[in-house]
Design a protein around this nucleic acid. Structure first.
Lengths: 221, 221
DNA sequence: TCCGAAGTCAAACGCTCGTTTTAATCATAC
DNA sequence: GTATGATTAAAACGAGCGTTTGACTTCGGA
């Protein structure tokens, strides 16, 4: 029963956090939904924040591991010019969608976290989350730079952030917009296809020549 | 002193809500930051949720008005094929950035709301926000469909959501990433250029032929 | 000069929060 | 059977929450 209680708490908390946010969800909401005793959260996890940390760990570590594994495979198979742009994009945005299908009824709820973590977790958890994502960001940034030699490094990073935002936002608002724009793609594989196509084209966009500041202004800061 | 107090509350609340979220920010935090009395929030706004509503109204209505005004101007100037894709994108993503420069020290904090509203506001406020955005979405969807006749309507809507997400996410994580990837563009006009280039290319991406379900499955739902 | 509306203030209200405590329950090894 | 360690249960804790109250300023117009 021990592991079962822990899992029930994790499942319920993940669902409620994603729907209502971390601060707005009480432990009583969670234990009510999970049908466990209130004190069991503090018994198994210590604090509410440690519970959030456990949720993030459970979901994002396998996703990030798979992203890197897919990129490893792509790069080992590719020639000297590296993998194709679309394949890199697919390796980056695919795993969250695939883990959805496997997780079953949970939905893509946990992806809503991406857009919310920055405001929901304290500095420590936020830093831990960023640290884990950083290895992914570093690997993919390098792969993108290789595939897009005309872009400078900062621009690549910026565009990866764009992709993450597009993905997280689509998850977050997808339900609501589906109700209002009935012809928008609701099925997750269609949404994934749209995202890959959109993101690959966006990454490949020409970089506008940066506006150079006058030398006086540039040296003067 | 009346209007001054109201404004001080709005400014402080906007800053704190964007940084820490709605539920995690107490009225005592806000009144402390604004240096006003605790009861003045309820006196001027009624409830905490009404305060959030006032913040959203103050920021997003002029932005959405300007978006539509810019699109009006583009369409009145354009020929029978409608405005260019990049111009439509610029009319959509530009106003939030420009209001930033005008607002001064506040930063782009209010843009963080976009990614958070769905989990921070109650159903009523969320609906009001969506309703106001819907007129923008409808106008721009139509303009995009005209500029991109190969895309079907649902796909256009989906991609607009991608753009909103990319914009909101870049604002949200921009500060943090700037610290870790020092060469990423920090100046807002550079970020805006990057976003316009990325989004226009993404919108113009080819639409993959949707996977047709077998007829039996399609008719069977 | 006095009045009344508008605004400010300190204090308190009832409530819910995360967490802790203490006791009861259960499985397992002796 | 009984001792032991892990888990669950119920109740309570103090703190902080959003909101309300009622007295106190402030000040332009009768």
């Amino acid at each position: 029963m021990a592991a079962e209680t822990k899992e029930r708490i994790l499942d319920a908390a993940e669902r409620l956090f994603a729907d209502s946010g971390f601060a707005a969800t009480s432990l009583r909401d969670i234990t009510g939904e999970a049908d466990v005793n209130l004190a069991s959260v503090n018994y198994h996890f210590g604090t509410k924040e440690a519970l959030l940390s456990a949720i993030l760990e459970r979901r994002f570590r396998p996703i990030n591991d798979q992203r890197i594994a897919l990129l490893d495979e792509l790069e080992s198979r590719a020639g000297e010019h590296g993998p194709a742009l679309e394949d890199i994009v697919a390796a980056f945005v695919g795993p969250p969608f695939h883990h959805w299908s496997e997780a079953g009824s949970g939905g893509l709820k946990f992806l809503k976290f991406i857009g919310q973590i920055h405001s929901q977790a304290n500095e420590e958890i936020r830093a831990a989350f960023l640290r884990q994502f950083e290895r992914v960001l570093a690997r993919f940034t390098a792969a993108f730079e290789r595939a897009l030699p005309d872009l400078d490094a900062g621009e690549v990073t910026t565009r990866v952030v764009f992709i993450v935002g597009a993905m997280a936002h689509a998850m977050t608002w997808g339900e609501q917009l589906a109700a209002r724009a009935p012809r928008a793609p609701c099925r997750s594989d269609q949404l994934l296809d749209s995202l890959i196509s959109f993101a690959a084209a966006g990454m490949a966009a020409p970089q506008l020549a940066p506006v150079r500041m006058p030398a006086a202004a540039e040296g003067g800061r």
